[in-house]
């Protein structure tokens, strides 16, 4: 128990230290840009990992939720005079309601069928964003205004860095709380055996819906922030390939590992930048990572390393 608590708090302290020390190592706007995007991806992946890694339910459509959050922040202030923060919360709420509505029928499906249904849902979102030109600007995308906090527009890399860093820290803390609580254990039980979970008094369907909605809301919030930070959104945010990138981050970092989600998100946000000179090879590398991880390290990088270290110590 104390050992586990120590690990949890140690991990959080490490994360805080890394975030706090970040500006010492980030030299220019480009570095900050990568760090901020990595942080936003990590927030999405933490939620997605609760769904895929802990509860064992796949989603190939989470980019759709991310994009809906982004468009809420693009459209609501511009067209309906929302405060940006209000738009973010409204977007998160609407995505939560949407996820709740579709979770009920979709999560009765399993395996391939669930993969296909979530994939279809994501693609429908991207096509709608593409076609509702009068509202979304269509394939050309649309400009997004500044995020204002306490009457101040949030501008500059450092301000964004601290905001995303703080949010990542809070998300991680909450996810760790959840994982080490009866709720997290129930999610893992649903993954392990739905029959046994039900027989132990776990309302399987309730937990599936809960984690689906939670992960969708996290994606929407990250999407909103991305829209403001980037100043521009396109329907590509909802694309199938974006959903796959998110799943790749989760798989690479490690199923059911919160730390793994962060590592996976950072690694795969960094990778395209490192490969910028070899842009043509980006997809080859991405595909190879996806296949290679699943075949060689099926539990992902962080859990595999953790197991190795534990073996050494033992």
């Amino acid at each position: 128990m104390s050992n586990q608590l120590l690990q949890r708090h140690g991990g959080l302290a490490l994360l805080a230290a890394i975030i706090a020390a970040g500006p010492l190592f980030l030299d220019n706007g480009f570095h900050y840009n990568v760090a901020i995007l990595a942080g936003l991806n990590a927030i999405v992946c933490i939620g997605l990992n609760l769904l895929i890694g802990h509860a064992g339910q796949i989603s190939l459509g989470h980019a759709g939720f991310f994009a809906l959050g982004a468009y809420a922040s693009a459209i609501l202030p511009e067209r309906f005079g929302f405060h940006p923060l209000g738009a973010l919360l409204t977007g998160a709420l609407l995505v939560g309601l949407l996820a709740f509505a579709i979770a009920r029928p979709i999560l009765r499906l399993r395996g391939h069928y669930l993969a296909m249904a979530t994939l279809g849902m994501g693609i429908i979102v991207s096509i709608v964003l593409d076609q509702k030109v009068d509202l979304t600007g269509g394939p050309d995308g649309m400009v997004v205004g500044d995020l204002t906090l306490f009457g101040q527009a949030l501008r500059g890399n450092l301000a964004w860095y601290w905001l995303v860093g703080a949010l990542l820290f809070v998300t991680t803390w909450m996810a760790l709380n959840l994982v080490h609580s009866p709720v997290g254990r129930a999610l893992k039980a649903v993954h392990g055996s739905e029959l046994a979970a039900a027989a132990m008094g776990v309302d399987v369907f309730h937990y599936k819906v809960l984690v689906f909605v939670l992960s969708a809301v996290l994606a929407a919030i990250a999407g909103s922030l991305f829209a403001h930070y980037n100043g521009f959104v396109t329907p590509d945010e909802a694309s199938f390939i974006h959903s796959i990138q998110l799943v790749t981050m989760v798989v690479l970092g490690g199923m059911a590992s919160i730390a793994g989600s962060i590592v996976g998100a950072v690694a795969l946000t960094l990778l395209p930048q490192l490969l910028a000179d070899f842009h043509d090879y980006e997809m080859i590398v991405f595909g190879a990572i996806l296949m290679g991880t699943m075949i060689l390290l099926p539990t992902g990088v962080v859990p595999t390393l953790a197991a190795r270290i534990r073996e050494r110590l033992a």
Partner: peptide, 16 residues
Amino acid sequence: VGNHRHTARRFLPCLL
């Protein structure tokens, strides 16, 4: 897990 029904399993307290 077997003890699930007898634990403090409400979402918000667990999240926090």
